[in-house]
Design a protein around this nucleic acid. Sequence first.
DNA 1: TTGAAAGCGCTAACAG
DNA 2: CTGTTAGCGCTTTCAA
Lengths: 337, 337
Amino acid sequence: MTVTIKDVARLAEVSISTVSRVINNSKPVSPEAKKRVLDAIKELGYKPNQVARSLVTRKSNLIGVIVTDIGNHYIAEMVRGIEEIGRMYKYDILLSSSYGDSDTETKFAHLLMSKQVEGIILISEKNDDQAIDEIKNFNIPHIYINKYYDNLNLPSVSIDNYEASNKMTKYLIELGHKNILFVSAKDDKDNSIEKYKIDGFSNAIKAQNGCKDYLYSTTGFSIKDGYNMGDSIINIVKENDITAVFCSQDELAIGFMSYCYDSDIKVPNDISICGYGDIKIASIYRPRLTTIKEPYYDIGAVAARRIIKKTDGDESEEENTYLPIQLIKRESCREIK
Amino acid sequence: MTVTIKDVARLAEVSISTVSRVINNSKPVSPEAKKRVLDAIKELGYKPNQVARSLVTRKSNLIGVIVTDIGNHYIAEMVRGIEEIGRMYKYDILLSSSYGDSDTETKFAHLLMSKQVEGIILISEKNDDQAIDEIKNFNIPHIYINKYYDNLNLPSVSIDNYEASNKMTKYLIELGHKNILFVSAKDDKDNSIEKYKIDGFSNAIKAQNGCKDYLYSTTGFSIKDGYNMGDSIINIVKENDITAVFCSQDELAIGFMSYCYDSDIKVPNDISICGYGDIKIASIYRPRLTTIKEPYYDIGAVAARRIIKKTDGDESEEENTYLPIQLIKRESCREIK
DNA sequence: TTGAAAGCGCTAACAG
DNA sequence: CTGTTAGCGCTTTCAA
């Protein structure tokens, strides 16, 4: 049924080695033989069987990617980055979604291994990553990406959260805001990334006379969570003359803006709101959300690039790559005279 | 390095055939032998090499999925469906993004074939699908999904667009709207799906005395396109006392709502707007968008299911599966007394 | 119930 | 420059 290297060899009247050589350009082949092979390939519509090839070369040209949920825009964006870079180096992406379950992550990691992937990228949102330990033992290149939790002794790609948060706070101060509330996602785990953001925020405020920092911890970091915290936030805002609310995640900011809309509170006239992440909706929602742009696509791209480099025998022991962020000024924050 | 079936056989003191038999439960094995094998497997941490297995069984347990852009929420949702069903049947997903380029689609189709995928799902947004012809010739199960264009002589999964559009229009009429504008994405191609929507709309209006249908064709179907058409739409609205605008895509509706926001036109007070699709933003944006829920997840799931069924030798020649839609009533459309 | 052996389609020494 | 041959790790006859 399917045409194999043998068929090509027969038609071209050469040995299968010669065919292999022209396919892979691995060794010199006489022009005449080459031509005959190429013609035969074309005539038969021959495509090398990658499975057979993988078996002998031990190169599957596959990168396994385990994500929480591809339906999350920022994750989709990372996967885009991974895929596009992978493609450049002829790697394919084997995708699996854990929906946040650690056991599933682990199970998939093993599954990917048995499919002979050459590297694994784990995009997680959890704090306890048992999968990580397993993956480490596999002895293949791996990258850990987590927007919410640190895992410092693992190769990873992320951003400088202190700097990002600091930059945004300075911008708010520049706009004339004095009393600023930072909303962080509550977390007792000390590997939560929130602490960097809080520090960046507080230090920016402290560096400025006449400014006061307020902190609020909320539960979760979904749009819904952002909506639900609305009542509490507004109370704090009123009690303390707060003019700007800086949410540690875009989702919270968007949810909170929806709350404001529903409660007839005008953004940015009554209150300025900014977020963190620059997820897709941030630029679509009205008013458009002022935020920190986390380079999701680039994070994925760099992760893929690092995996492939390691695959090619690169030995550098770089643990964490930090990518630059950007402050995106939009209409959800206004100037205060 | 890696532990193979041989290692297991040696440790368990049986032949590799026996090991294979217990792994696959393919033939009876004596309890004692079985136990020894199982113990050996556990002790060595043996995982069968799927590549080797694929080579001999010709079953890769891989489904190839070619998408336009995984960053598109509705596509991500479909991929979720595909992946989850695939997973249930132990299939993995090989993902590739064409970014809308036909040549790339074709290239990927071939690539997937050489990776021995057992089926291909093509999620396209184009009208000219050369890739389709190629895929047909591969002689493996395939499904074609396209939200915008028909391709009737291909196995596909979609919805009944006439009914959906008809239902929405009737709802608008129920709300008391008399002059309704339907915005469709202009398209000369007669395989565009817009015609069904237009028919569904017009027929609903015609069935109702005192109602008048207006049609507007715009270019493209992105959020930006929806924004850009704002001026023209508002003119038509004003000239004809139109109270509701029914956009043939959520993206257009959202873009148009943003235009309204920026132009200080209140939705739904000044004008009711509804969309089609129920993309993620539809329920997040304020006001939330009244729309038709296209079951993206289910479309993906059904597609995967059909592929797998075919793989298992199912011969039914079902060409197109139609999935039910839902009318989602939200705040972007108001009642007119 | 078991093992020996062939072979899936390909690459990579090796010898010529 | 080319062909022969030995596997890659596994499944599957075929005999025993």
